[in-house]
Design a protein around this nucleic acid. Structure first.
Length: 185
DNA sequence: CCCTGATTCGC
DNA sequence: GCGAATCAGG
């Protein structure tokens, strides 16, 4: 019986595997379960990993070398209350659920429409006024008309588009290992 | 707003 | 050793 929250050999190995595989800390945390992304990152650093695809010869990580600032941290954490809600503060780790949508093949729709404006809810579409940094900037319609909108869906980190439009924008012909199915007993 | 990893430091 | 809080960046 593996105690949840304990770094057993299995969990450490899985951690190494997933980390070297390119998965983010939150994804690994979600996959491992009972741990937050902070725990994963902390363990990664303790194991001497980190840097992931970094050359050991290079070293001199800008962040590590950077003196940063003097963090006069004030440990005032009144979070210790009788109402211990495990799902209250979990945001990042639980945001990515390990569950995946296995493409409902039951539907008689083998190939989705190649159109870029295929299935975009109107409620999601926004004008440039409502566009936020985290929103997808995929243009929809004629920019010269008042009907011009943006996708407005949640954009991927560091990307201007959402996951859906990112695939359209960048067609690498190769799938990322983000949504690869895991085979665990 | 969302996310990412890096670091610190009380436990 | 562990990981929450925090930081710094995208």
């Amino acid at each position: 019986m593996n105690e949840a929250g304990a770094w057993t050999e299995e969990r450490v190995e899985l951690l190494k595997k997933l980390w070297s595989d390119g998965l983010s800390a939150s994804q690994i945390a979600a996959e491992l379960g009972s741990v937050t992304r902070n725990a994963v990152i902390g363990k990664v650093h303790r194991l001497g990993l980190s840097g992931r695809a970094k050359n050991p010869a290079a070293a001199s990580t800008p962040r590590a070398a950077a003196p940063r600032k003097a963090p006069t941290r004030s440990p005032s954490h009144p979070m210790g209350g009788p109402s211990s809600n495990p799902g209250a503060m979990t945001r990042g780790a639980n945001a990515l659920a390990p569950q995946y949508a296995p493409e409902p093949e039951a539907q008689a729709e083998p190939e989705p429409a190649p159109s870029e404006d295929v299935v975009i809810p109107f409620s999601e579409r926004v004008t440039i006024m409502d566009l936020r940094e985290y929103m997808c900037r995929w243009p929809m319609g004629d920019p010269t008309t008042a009907e011009f909108r943006f996708c407005g869906s949640r954009s991927q980190t560091g990307l201007p588009y959402c996951s859906y439009h990112s695939r359209i924008a960048y067609q690498p012909a190769a799938d990322r290992r983000r949504d690869r199915s895991k085979v665990r007993a």
